[in-house]
Amino acid sequence: MRTYAEGLVLAVVSLVAIWGAWQVPAASPGDTWAGIVPFAASVALLGLSGLLLVGASSQVGDVATARADSGATVQIIVLFIIALIYQQSFRWFGYLLPTAIVAPIVLYMFGVRSWIGLAVSVVICPLVFHLIFFVLLGVFPPYGEVFDLLSWIQG
């Protein structure tokens, strides 16, 4: 069951990524299409999801394994829903606020139980990711339409 859930989630992610890659505008004559790498990676993910699903269909398990997989399946689906909400919330609230909210939730799901560590992750995760992506790599941060903590901090 768990492998089925992983394969299905990966298939959905890869299909959305393929659709997103097709949204990249066509290249000018003589240039390389900017969507070639995301498209190739998305197709590769779709192939991997197919392998997961084929492997899941050939697995035979006992009842104890099925119960353990059932709990893991729920966690996979919950994490996928959190990822979708997180990604969509960038549009409304920018980058910092959703990251500050989601980081401790996901860390808790992965076994971090220190309340101090979870509280620190509210500040550290957005700060570290901001430094890596928007300062060092020079990617433009997504600004929120409803409220953006970054523009509020910058004044």
Rank of each mutant, 00 (worst) to 15 (best):
D69A: 01
I77E: 11
E6W: 14
G7V: 00
V13S: 05
V78G: 12
L51D: 11
Q23Y: 07
Q23T: 10
L51P: 00
D31L: 01
I85N: 10
R91G: 12
L137F: 14
Q59Y: 05
I77D: 09
I18R: 00
L45R: 02
V37R: 10
W33R: 15
V24T: 15
T32M: 13
E145R: 06
I85D: 07
W19I: 15
V128S: 08
A5V: 09
V122Y: 01
A56W: 00
V139Q: 15
Q88K: 11
I81Y: 13
Q75A: 09
Q75C: 07
Y4L: 07
V146N: 06
L136R: 04
S58M: 12
L96D: 05
S42N: 05
F90M: 10
L96S: 03
A44T: 12
I76D: 08
A40S: 07
F39D: 03
R2I: 11
V123I: 07
F133T: 11
L45H: 01
R67N: 14
I105V: 14
P104Q: 09
V13K: 02
G138I: 10
G144N: 06
D31R: 09
G30Q: 12
A72T: 02
V106R: 02
L131M: 10
L96W: 08
L150M: 08
A17C: 08
A5D: 06
A83Y: 04
I153F: 12
A40Y: 01
A56L: 03
I81N: 11
V128A: 13
V43A: 02
L107C: 04
L8H: 00
G35K: 13
L51C: 05
L51E: 08
H130A: 07
Y95G: 06
G55T: 00
Q23M: 06
G30R: 10
E6T: 14
I132P: 02
A64T: 15
R113Q: 11
F133D: 03
F90L: 12
L107A: 00
P38E: 00
A100K: 00
V112C: 06
F134D: 07
A100R: 01
